[in-house]
Amino acid sequence: MTRITAAVCATHGAPLQIEQLDLRAPLAGEIEVTLEAVAICHSDIHYADGAWGGDLPAVYGHEAAGRVSALGDTVTGLAVGDRVVVTLIRSCGTCPNCSGGKPTLCDTPRANASPLSRQDGTSVVQAMNCGAFASHVVVDQSQVVPLPDDIPPEAVALLACGVITGIGAVVNAARLRPGQDVVVIGAGGVGLNAIQGARIAGARRIVAVDVTQEKLDIARDFGATDGVLATCPAPWKAVQQILGRGADAVIVTVGAIPAYNDAPRYLGWGGKVVMVGMPHSGAMAEFEPVVLAYMAQGMVGSKMGDVVIRRDIPWMADLYRQGRLKLDELVSGRWRLDQINDAIADTKAGGAKRNVILF
């Protein structure tokens, strides 16, 4: 057992508690990672607030970077000391989805119990297969990708979720082609990366739609060619005036029902809405199916950008090293683990792109 420090959610909606937990040694196919950084994602906050239910006590956190500190039996391709990005994408490699190139949809049940426990023996949920609001994690080897030492740990951590989700939604789910037009609804952490993905993919115009002018200004720094306030009357009409037609792809990166209700209105003929942002369970949206049918439009969900992490994360890391992908600029603040509740409050306030806990 390794004694670790973690931020534990004991009650939904309450501040996280800093506790000393026990972390068992890695089993076959698992590795232990001593963390250097973990970013705070809105998904962690929604889970901690009880938006999607879940058992407690639990440790959240799933955008992490660190160094391999122990190996279980049968682990290959990794060594103690390797710098790795730790993701929540755990794949068996053999189920129909994994075999079909969709590891984000792996449907093989988790085989091992949570490696976390309190000192009295009470099991603690390792949320999202990571539990990375902690000094150490034990995860399946399929969840990590080794990356070069010259990339800062904050940048490595961001490649675990927000970056791959945003870029992947454009490149993998929307399959954007050069010269097409994109609307990105929401200019937060994931939205900014969708904008970067559209720029990298060669979009003609990239229109950011958000409720604040401040976020629209930031979106331009990441590649948006235009910005439209979501609070203006019929913002989709303003977007169509900018583009001269409807969009080829609309990427919804916020979990807001009004955004989903309006998303198809931005589309042109044959366009596609890519659904990324996750509303609370039970929330319902409405759309007019006859329009989608007549205009040959579509709506598709995108989980974690439909990425294959061993293919896509090294590609994105190389774009960063070339200066073509902004990661350092996404970091709004650096915090200690004992400041995590302040970092979460700052994230909830809406101004942060990504707050990062450093160990």
Rank of each mutant, 00 (worst) to 15 (best):
residue 4 I to P: 03
residue 7 A to D: 07
residue 8 V to D: 10
residue 13 G to Q: 05
residue 13 G to M: 06
residue 13 G to T: 01
residue 16 L to R: 11
residue 16 L to K: 03
residue 17 Q to T: 15
residue 18 I to C: 08
residue 20 Q to M: 09
residue 21 L to D: 03
residue 25 A to T: 11
residue 27 L to S: 15
residue 33 V to G: 01
residue 37 A to Q: 01
residue 45 I to E: 00
residue 49 D to A: 10
residue 51 A to H: 14
residue 57 P to H: 08
residue 61 G to C: 06
residue 66 G to E: 07
residue 75 V to S: 04
residue 77 G to S: 01
residue 79 A to S: 14
residue 81 G to R: 07
residue 89 I to G: 05
residue 94 T to S: 15
residue 97 N to S: 15
residue 99 S to T: 14
residue 101 G to D: 06
residue 105 L to K: 10
residue 114 S to H: 00
residue 118 R to W: 14
residue 119 Q to V: 12
residue 119 Q to G: 08
residue 126 Q to N: 05
residue 133 F to D: 05
residue 133 F to S: 06
residue 137 V to L: 06
residue 137 V to D: 06
residue 139 V to E: 12
residue 141 Q to D: 14
residue 148 P to E: 10
residue 151 I to L: 15
residue 156 V to F: 11
residue 162 G to M: 12
residue 163 V to D: 07
residue 163 V to F: 12
residue 169 A to W: 05
residue 172 N to F: 15
residue 178 P to G: 03
residue 180 Q to T: 04
residue 181 D to K: 08
residue 184 V to C: 03
residue 184 V to K: 04
residue 187 A to M: 01
residue 200 I to Q: 06
residue 211 V to N: 04
residue 213 Q to C: 03
residue 216 L to N: 07
residue 217 D to A: 12
residue 223 G to A: 08
residue 229 L to D: 08
residue 232 C to I: 09
residue 232 C to D: 10
residue 234 A to K: 12
residue 240 Q to A: 09
residue 241 Q to W: 05
residue 245 R to T: 10
residue 245 R to N: 09
residue 246 G to Q: 06
residue 246 G to A: 05
residue 248 D to M: 00
residue 251 I to P: 01
residue 256 A to G: 00
residue 258 P to Q: 05
residue 262 D to G: 09
residue 267 L to N: 02
residue 268 G to R: 02
residue 272 K to M: 08
residue 274 V to H: 02
residue 282 G to N: 00
residue 286 E to K: 11
residue 289 P to S: 00
residue 296 A to M: 11
residue 299 M to V: 02
residue 299 M to D: 00
residue 300 V to R: 03
residue 300 V to P: 00
residue 301 G to H: 11
residue 301 G to W: 14
residue 307 V to H: 01
residue 307 V to I: 15
residue 307 V to R: 03
residue 317 A to E: 06
residue 318 D to S: 13
residue 331 V to G: 11
residue 332 S to T: 15
residue 337 L to N: 06
residue 339 Q to L: 09
residue 343 A to E: 15
residue 355 N to S: 15
